[in-house]
């Protein structure tokens, strides 16, 4: 039972990370109708930037996070202008090739800068192990969980209470209608892509004190986020978050009881099963975010 709880806690915090990444992806899918194969690579870059700033340059943790987020914001803007905007009205094939090309560019740029050796950014908190009876948890897991929850609340507040946030929801529910009311879809898409990129990067930043980051982690993360998004129903934010937590927990249990080496396979299998048997997700059909 203790060991089960231990896995469960790991699963929930990993799920929180996946949820951050998946939430960014589902926003993008909902608003821009674009599946971004480079989404996980922004997670990877977030992790590396933290390692670079915090470990290599010894910049304080919080400041490192702020700098990383600013860099992610700039990357998000560039990504929207260079990749998303030119392909937004093209077919899935062009979007696939363009975002996949971006993914390969980003992961190989990471190789050029940081090599292929996995890196970790341990912090004081991540090295502080809490003992709750027989269970041991790194205190950083609480940070992960709370940052994720705060991000969900902030995003929800943003989409429900700001004009541009509401326009994001409008664009995801009925893109054609936006034209009729003069909603600037271009600007909405720019904001969405930037938020999406920043969320993916933030996930990388908060998890790298616990797990290694390596250049190839991007495509694996993209697939996990995709799995959550498809499970949740394309564009359904709540569905994506719940699915990401389920995925994190299933993976942690699989890793604990079956095989840690093949942990990722569990999520790929889930993805394929969902695609084949529940292509509209686990929570019924719903339009938009």
């Amino acid at each position: 039972m203790e060991i089960f709880l231990q896995y469960l806690i790991a699963g929930i915090t990993n799920g929180a990370t996946y949820a951050l990444v998946a939430l960014g992806l589902t926003l993008l899918v909902g608003v821009a109708r674009l599946v971004n194969f480079a989404h996980g690579d922004f997670f990877m870059l977030g992790g590396y930037l933290l390692v670079f700033l915090f470990v290599d340059k010894e910049i304080p943790y919080l400041l490192s996070i702020v700098i990383t987020l600013i860099v992610m914001l700039i990357l998000g803007l560039l990504f929207e202008r260079i990749v998303v905007h030119p392909t937004i009205n093209k077919t899935w094939r062009e979007q696939l090739v363009a975002t996949l090309a971006t993914s390969i560019i980003l992961s190989n740029v990471a190789i050029l800068f940081w090599g292929t050796t996995p890196r970790l950014a341990p912090t004081k908190l991540s090295l502080t192990i809490l003992r709750l009876g027989p269970i041991t948890i790194s205190s950083h897991r609480f940070v992960v969980f709370f940052v994720a929850v705060i991000s969900f609340i902030a995003l929800s507040f943003f989409t429900k209470n700001t004009k541009i946030g509401k326009a994001m929801r409008a664009a995801s529910q009925n893109r054609d209608a936006c034209l009729i009311y003069g909603i600037n879809v271009n600007f909405v898409s720019l904001v969405t892509v930037t938020i999406s990129t920043m969320m993916s990067g933030l996930a990388g930043v908060i998890i790298t004190p616990l797990y290694n980051v390596s250049p190839t982690v991007g495509s694996v993360m993209t697939l996990k986020a995709l799995t959550s998004v498809v499970m949740g129903g394309l564009g359904n934010t709540t569905g994506a978050i719940i699915s990401a937590f389920i995925l994190g927990i299933v993976e942690a249990l699989f890793s604990g009881y079956v095989s840690s080496q093949y942990q990722d396979v569990a999520s790929f299998v889930i993805m394929i099963l969902i695609l084949v048997f529940r292509p509209h997700g686990m929570f019924g059909k719903k339009v938009g975010i």
Binding site: I82, V83, T87, A101, I104, I105
Partner: peptide, 10 residues
């Protein structure tokens, strides 16, 4: 290659 592809597709 990635840049080529990207320029080509976009």
């Amino acid at each position: 290659y990635g840049l080529f592809l990207l320029i080509f597709v976009t």
